[in-house]
Amino acid sequence: MTLLSPDDVAPVKRDLDATLAALDRMLLGRPELHRLVLAGILARGHILLEGLPGLGKTALIRALAQILDLDFKRVQFTPDLMPSDILGSHILETGPDGNRTMAFKPGPVFCNLLLADEINRASPKTQSAMLETMQERTVTLMGVTRPLPKPFFVLASQNPIELEGTYPLPEAQTDRFIFKLHVSPPDAATLTAIITTRSHGDMPESGFSLGRDSLERALDTVGKVLLPEAVAGWIGRLVAATHGAKYVTCGASPRAAIAMAESARALALMDGRPSVGFDDVRKVAFPVLNHRLILDYRAKLDGVDARSVVDGVLESTPVAE
């Protein structure tokens, strides 16, 4: 494998820096969150955003869609939402020749960027309809499998409170999200900047569009970033260590290791590097692992959360064996 040359990396980095700058300009006070969201996108992953209402989860996704210049659809998940409302359905149509045929009416999932707002309010049946679309990026209806447009990302949001009438996402589905990012409330300075610079809280125009071609080139370049053997081995040991970690009932899946490697590559590229370092893995370890670890009752009793467990795993696993 040949290392990416600086000439290959530099334009991509320039585009990604501009994207991040536009995001930071549109949404104030969360550069790290924007960085991780972009890394998740570059890793071709789906992202779950969790936070209290009004923290700008939906705004972030809308801004990202605007900057990336992708086909964007929004679905508000409710308990009575049916799979066909997302995936699409067949309807009876009369052709010009008078013959009636079942025609497929694609649902909102046929887009590049799907905003699944409050995804945990939909019923398990509807949530399960998303499994195939998120993993295989296809939709199978009436025995016909249809591919989704490329690229395809699901950016879902959920509210950690008001859990009455919600259906927590099954582990199989949370595992399909590359990151689960916690949207924290902005600090006072950010709030002051928001109310002084934004009229009615409206986001300013992005002023920059990455474009589909640039995004495709960035996605291709991410795949060429070198993942050294030592770093790959450390990722493997980290994920394996979650299975025997204290307070953990079920550790992370192999999908977590893949997600960690891909998102670390994306972070390396965003830094303008042709190879992944251990620090990249450290940065993505918590967003990748936090929703994949199932903690036991002792963790609740001792007040231990996923961050503590992940930090412990990172500390206890040496980079070199």
């Binding site: 494998m1 040949t2 290392l3 990416l4 040359s5 070198l226 050294p228 053997e229 030592a230 770093v231 390396a268 830094d271 590097r273 042709p274 190879s275 992944v276 370092g277 251990f278 620090d279 990249d280 980079v319 070199a320």
Partner: peptide, 17 residues
């Protein structure tokens, strides 16, 4: 590499390019 925070460049020293 870990101590240098070189972003994998030390590990990739022997890689072509």
């Amino acid at each position: 590499e870990d101590a240098s925070h070189a972003g994998g460049l030390i590990l990739a020293k022997d890689v072509p390019g």
